[in-house]
Simulated scan of single mutants.
Amino acid sequence: MAAGGSYFYKGSDLIHDYGCSKCEENDLNTEAQHFCPDCEHYLCDKCDGIHGEYFKKHVVYGRGEIQKWAGFSIDKCDQHGKELEDHCDDHQELCCSVCVALNHRLCSSISHLPDLAKGFLQTTEFKQLPAAVDKIKSRLYKLTNSRMNYQASLRDSYENIIVIIKALRDEINQILDTLEERTVEQLDSIMKDLEKSIKDDLEICSYMDDQLSIMIEKLQHMAYKKETSSFIGFMKCQSKLSEASDDCLVN
Rank of each mutant, 00 (worst) to 15 (best):
C77A: 13
L102C: 06
L241Y: 01
C39Q: 15
S108I: 00
L84E: 12
Q186V: 13
I74P: 03
Q33H: 14
E171A: 03
G11D: 09
K225P: 02
H34N: 14
L179S: 06
S189R: 10
I165H: 03
D13M: 04
E171M: 03
I161Q: 08
K127F: 03
D27Q: 11
S97D: 01
L28W: 10
Q92M: 06
R155Y: 07
I50T: 15
I66C: 14
E181Y: 07
L84W: 14
S157I: 04
N251Q: 07
L113T: 01
S146Y: 00
H58M: 12
K135P: 00
E203N: 08
K236I: 03
R105N: 04
Q79T: 14
K57M: 15
E93S: 03
I190V: 02
L140N: 04
H41Y: 09
I232L: 10
K236G: 04
L106A: 15
H34I: 11
K135N: 01
R182T: 05
R169N: 04
G49T: 10
D193N: 15
E181W: 02
L202R: 12
C248T: 01
I204R: 13
D201V: 07
V60H: 05
N103D: 12
E159W: 05
S21K: 00
K166L: 04
L179H: 01
D188T: 12
S153Y: 10
H80F: 08
E227H: 05
L212Y: 05
